[in-house]
């Protein structure tokens, strides 16, 4: 069909090229939303993500010296545990709930047992609810900082030491800490990116 002259053809091609570039850019933008979302959640400490600036502030000794318990209020900290659905584990907190003063260092333990017949390297991923409280929950020592190796049938009690920051908003009186345990080997065979993400999350949680 002779619908137009050459200049028309050229401008059609120009418009099409430009729009195709926009399409590709927007497709990439869709994927870019994932890291952007993560970064925003961290920057504002929302949605249970941990804030990076807390890193290093609470090494154990310093924390012990600095913190002074605020005896005027109490905060209930609840613990839950879940497994990635593919993981054959027993995994639970040994205490489901403790009452602490802000600034007080407490230790609780999680129990985990490998029910499979092979050695498994597992990684725990923490999350705090309500999301706004995440940045006030400081873990001094946590089994989630590193990957845990379990021999077949091996069971462990794993410690967690934490301090609830005194700056925790007054309206929050209950915190829930949830751990999900999952098999890093399994993830590793699937995707390295997944393991990296996990390690990054765990690292930031320190």
């Amino acid at each position: 069909m002779s619908t137009g002259n050459n200049s028309q053809l050229e401008s059609n091609q120009r418009v099409t090229r430009f729009l195709l570039v926009v399409v590709v850019v927007m497709f990439c933008f869709g994927f870019a939303l994932a890291p952007m979302y993560e970064a925003l959640c961290k920057a504002f400490g929302i949605n249970g993500r941990f804030v990076e600036i807390e890193q290093g502030v609470y090494d154990a000794d310093k924390a012990m010296q600095q913190v002074k318990a605020d005896r005027d209020r109490q905060v209930t900290v609840q613990f839950t545990a879940s497994r990635n659905q593919n993981l054959q584990w027993e995994f639970r907190p040994m205490e489901t709930s403790v009452v602490v003063y802000p600034g007080e260092v407490r230790e609780v333990k999680y129990y985990a047992k490998n029910l499979t017949g092979k050695t498994v390297v597992a990684q725990a991923v923490p999350s705090v609810s309500p999301g706004q409280a995440a940045k006030y929950f400081n873990k001094i020592e946590c089994f989630c900082f590193t990957q845990q190796t379990f021999k077949p049938g091996e069971a462990k009690e794993m410690p967690l030491r934490f301090v609830v920051d005194g700056k925790l908003p007054k309206k929050i009186s209950t915190l829930t800490l949830a751990y999900t345990f999952f098999d890093t080997d399994q993830a590793g065979t699937k995707s390295k990116a997944q393991v990296d993400t996990v390690l990054r999350v765990a690292h930031n949680a320190k």
Binding site: V125, A187, K190, S191, Q194, T197, V198
Partner: peptide, 11 residues
């Protein structure tokens, strides 16, 4: 393919 964009367990 084992990614975890929408799965909390994988970050």
């Amino acid at each position: 393919f084992g990614t975890s964009f929408f799965s909390a367990a994988g970050g």
